[in-house]
Design a protein around this nucleic acid. Structure first.
Length: 430
DNA sequence: TCTGGGGTCCTAGGACCC
DNA sequence: TCTGGGGTCCTAGGACCC
């Protein structure tokens, strides 16, 4: 009896497949000369380091550091610098994910470069071997190196992946390792999935420095500070699976488009232009997701790294939810006027759509005066715009309100070609 | 003097993730 | 001089209701 209970507890097996230095690996795939060289990929506006090759990690360059702080190192070690090329990364991500689908029916795409695979049904196989197959197949079919961590819970699989990354084989199955506690005692508490800077600081303050110490820590202490999330985390560390696979593509609860400006903006027309453009992008996203928004928030702020930080936002509720660009833009323009302050140097702004409902469920409003024919015409206009922009490239067709000057436009000076998603950028072999 | 109690809903803010 | 963007979940506390 007891053994069957234990059996059931040990039933689950999760693999976390994580692409190694994903953005850097994407750049290297189309430019093999980058192999073995230090490479970084930068965030929007070429602001911060968001991906690093191993050589760069070895130089001690941290994730998220502003690039201007490491110019010296870049020069000295001839670090290759790239702007983000999201269309390339997104396309390659899709190829990795579809390759993973060959290995198990249940794959949860967790982020652009990570997926959980439910291997519970395969647990009597040698999963280390299976992990190796996964690794080799992705490398062969897509050209991206991945690491595979395997364990009885998602949290432990994340942890196993950290170890896999450091190992030469790139695969680590924690569930067959003789002493899990020994491993946990070597993992810093801040490296656990779900423990960020704030919690890590607090935990260390309480003398909890390792994953093993967190696993064995007083539950009421953890609950008081971290709530139910902390309790589940402890259980997961103990091998009891609390976080299930999320397989349904849940509809989004909010959609946000925001940008930092390369130079700050201080006039109302410029701010309106920027926000108009973000609103257009957000409306496009909503239509792609087949959703409509009923609440719209506009925000703008100055640089948090300067004195006299100023930040403001305004929200409006729509009578009738919509994903029609012109309606959303009209509201966004009014909101922008209400948050603008003369004399402020705005460095970032954005628009957030919430109260999202499925396009089909949009409730009619008694006071809605537009007739069906009008609605049909708006819908057709949007769908024509979306199609043209999809075929001929973003912003082929756009509204005049998004501006002609576009001083706010994102900087991206080191972008590699869109090798896989744009005909003009196809790699040429001669 | 002494001023209910419990439920629900909503929102803002705080934490986290990649 | 130069510091990303887009999400999720949970909780506490206030409003409101009977």
């Amino acid at each position: 009896m007891l053994s069957t209970v234990l059996d059931r507890k040990a039933e689950k097996r999760f693999a976390l497949v994580d692409c190694n230095n994903f953005y850097v690996s994407c750049e290297r795939l189309f430019n093999p000369a980058l192999m073995g060289k230090p490479v970084v990929v930068l965030s929007n506006n070429d602001g911060c380091v968001v991906a690093r090759s191993q050589e760069v990690k070895d130089l001690g360059i941290k994730m998220g550091i502003p690039v201007f702080r490491i110019y010296e190192l870049i020069k000295r070690y001839d670090v290759q610098v790239y702007s983000s090329n999201y269309s390339l990364y997104g396309d390659l991500s899709g190829r990795v994910m579809s390759t993973l689908a060959y290995f198990a029916p249940d794959v949860e795409i967790y982020s652009i470069d990570e997926a959980f695979i439910d291997l519970s049904g395969f647990r009597y196989r040698d999963l280390t071997e299976y992990g190796n197959e996964i690794r080799q197949r992705v490398l062969q079919w897509v050209g991206i190196p991945v690491s595979v961590g395997i364990a009885p819970t998602k949290t432990l699989a994340k942890l196993a992946n950290l170890i896999a990354k450091k190992s030469s084989s790139g695969v680590f199955d924690l569930s067959v390792y003789p002493s899990m506690d020994e491993i946990l005692s070597q993992v810093d508490v801040g490296d656990i999935w779900g423990i960020g800077f704030k919690y890590a600081t607090w935990l260390r303050d309480k003398g909890i420095n390792t994953a093993l110490q967190l696993k064995n820590a007083d539950e009421s202490l953890i609950r008081a500070k971290m709530g139910i999330v902390g309790v589940k985390l402890q259980l997961e560390l103990r091998g009891e699976s609390c976080l299930a696979m999320e397989l349904l593509d849940n509809p989004k609860k909010g959609t946000c488009v925001s940008r930092s400006f390369p130079q700050s903006i201080d006039t109302l027309p410029e701010l309106k232009e920027a926000i108009a453009s973000f609103t257009h992008r957000a409306a496009e996203k909503l239509r792609r997701q087949k959703q409509s928004a009923s609440v719209i928030t506009v925000f703008a702020r100055t640089s948090p790294f300067r004195d006299n930080f100023y930040s403001n936002s305004a929200t409006a509720e729509l009578d009738l939810s919509t994903n029609y660009t012109i309606e959303l833009s009209r509201v966004a323009a009014q909101l922008t006027e209400s948050i603008y302050r003369k004399g402020q140097n705005f460095k970032k702004a954005g628009v957030i759509m919430t109260g999202l409902v499925s396009e089909k469920q949009v409730q009619g409003n008694l006071f809605d005066v537009s007739n069906d024919e009008e609605k049909m015409r708006s819908r057709n206009l949007m769908s024509v715009m979306d199609t043209i922009n999809e075929i001929y490239g973003r912003d082929t067709l756009r509204f005049a309100s998004t501006g002609v000057i576009q001083v706010w436009k994102t900087k991206s000076e080191q972008r590699s070609p869109k090798y896989t998603t744009c005909w003009q950028d196809l790699l040429e072999v001669s």
